[in-house]
Write a protein that binds this DNA or RNA. Sequence first.
DNA 1: GTATATGCAAAGGGTTTGCACGGTT
DNA 2: AACCGTGCAAACCCTTTGCATATAC
Lengths: 141, 141
Amino acid sequence: MSTTEWEQRLRRGGYRITPQRQLVLESVGRLGHGTPEEILAEVQRTATGVNLSTVYRNLEVLEEVGLVTHAHIGHGAPTYHSVDDHVHIHLVCDGCGLVQSIDAGLAEPFLDELRRETGFVTDVSHVALHGTCSACSVASS
Amino acid sequence: MSTTEWEQRLRRGGYRITPQRQLVLESVGRLGHGTPEEILAEVQRTATGVNLSTVYRNLEVLEEVGLVTHAHIGHGAPTYHSVDDHVHIHLVCDGCGLVQSIDAGLAEPFLDELRRETGFVTDVSHVALHGTCSACSVASS
DNA sequence: GTATATGCAAAGGGTTTGCACGGTT
DNA sequence: AACCGTGCAAACCCTTTGCATATAC
C-alpha cells in the first residue's frame, strides 16, 4: 500500500485525515493484530492523550473504508488487523484455550459448495472455529 | 430422553434437583432456542420470583451435564437449546442480518480433513459463519 | 445438619453515546 | 465559517460475583 493510499481511501469515504486516525492505522499495522485496548496502548506510546472511544470510532471508520478488518477469536474483545495480512482461519480449543491458525484455503471446497447450494458467500476468517485440539482429545479419551 | 434422565444426569454430576433447574430446562425445550433473557421470561411465566443470575448459573450447570448447549449467532447474547435438537450451522448475513440454518453434514468433508491434518475436532455449530447472503450479493454487484 | 442453590445488589468487561470543545477542510 | 472529530463521562448490554438466606439432601 503506497504512503498515501490510506489517505485517499479515507477522503473518498468522506472522512478527514487526523493524527488519531493515522496513529490507529499505524498501530494496527505495527502490532499485526490487537484488541481495541491493545491498540490504544500502542497509540499511547506516541500520543498519551488519545481516548479509547476515539480508537473504537476510528477502527469502525478504517474498517468501513477497507483499511482494517476484525475477527472474533475468543469470547472477549475482537481482534483487529490490517487488510493486507493473509487470510487465515482461527481454531480455538475450548479445553485448553489454544489458538491455532490455518490457511483459509483448506476451507475453499466447503465454502464453494456452500455458495453453490445457498448463494451464501462466507467470510471464514471473521469468526474462529471452536472445538477440541489434538492434545485435549487425547487427554479426555 | 426419559422423564427422569435429566434428574439422573444432574445427580451424577453432583448437583441437586431444584424447581429453578427444572424450569430452566423445560423452558429451553419449550422455546426451542433462546437467550438467557428470553429463557428467564419463559421461566417467569410459571415462577415470577426467579432471578436472571439463577438462569445463568443453571444454564452453565445444565450445559456441563450435557442437557443444553449454546451457540453464538449474532454479536449479542448466546442462544441456548436442548441437546436433542439436530445439529445445524448458522449463517449470518452481515449485510441484512438474515440468519439461515443449514445441515451440519455439509461441512463434514472439510471438518474430517481438518481433523486428519491437525487433530482438531470442530464443534461447527458453536459459532455462526458470517458473510453475505445471495440477496445482498446481488444487490452490491 | 450441612452443603449447595437462590435472590439480590453490586461490580465487571467491552462498547456506545451525548455533549461541549477543538481541529480539518 | 461550517462541519467533523475528539475527549470526557455517563450509560449501555451482557455476565459474573459476594453475601446472607433458604432449601435439597
